[in-house]
Design a protein around this nucleic acid. Sequence first.
DNA 1: ATTGTATATCGTCGTTTTACGATTAATAGG
DNA 2: CCTATTAATCGTAAAACGACGATATACAAT
Lengths: 103, 103
Amino acid sequence: MTQAETFMKQDSESLLDAHAFAGVCKALGHPARIRIVEHLKAIDRCICGEIVQILPLAQSTVSQHLKVLKNAGLVKGEVEGPCTCYCLDRETLERFKKTAGSI
Amino acid sequence: MTQAETFMKQDSESLLDAHAFAGVCKALGHPARIRIVEHLKAIDRCICGEIVQILPLAQSTVSQHLKVLKNAGLVKGEVEGPCTCYCLDRETLERFKKTAGSI
DNA sequence: ATTGTATATCGTCGTTTTACGATTAATAGG
DNA sequence: CCTATTAATCGTAAAACGACGATATACAAT
């Protein structure tokens, strides 16, 4: 980590917020991931394969996008037999909406 | 542009929204840019040099971040003599907040 | 005209992202 | 036990990002 990056993370309380909020924004900064979130919002929960169907992307690419969303805390996935069922993490989403609204 | 990218842009109305919204999210997906937006929100308008002062980044880097925000429609800059004065584009910001709230 | 100040742009370098196919791992069902 | 299915991971290539210093540009003031 560079000095600038360290400084950017360490400063005041609002900077920590900026960093966290930027992280979620970054995760939402791709149309495919927006569509995944929209889909999950609409149908509550679904298996990975269904998301692969609705996007014009390879299975491995979708899996990567889901990982990005998961790392950002926006979605949760739980294994159900051979499938993985995904749903939104409403808490992160609400926090994001709240912060976005306050900008 | 790949086939997948083209498809991702062309589809239904909601996809265009997804693309536009993702673009703004992406622009906000860096702590330095969040801080710039917060600062402009707080003081309404200021010259570039002031932003350079509050960030631990080189002038050229800040200029790049401002360009990203400008391209995303989040800020507007107007030349005032030797300086450039920046302010938020409230319209884009409101649209972002509205869309974020609807997710 | 010259000098100084403010900002944008250029060139570069290392890192990250995005995409894909191929492979692996895990589980369900015959 | 084998086989098929599902999803994650690996390896890779192209593109984009983020940072910087150096340079160019534009304007103010002397």
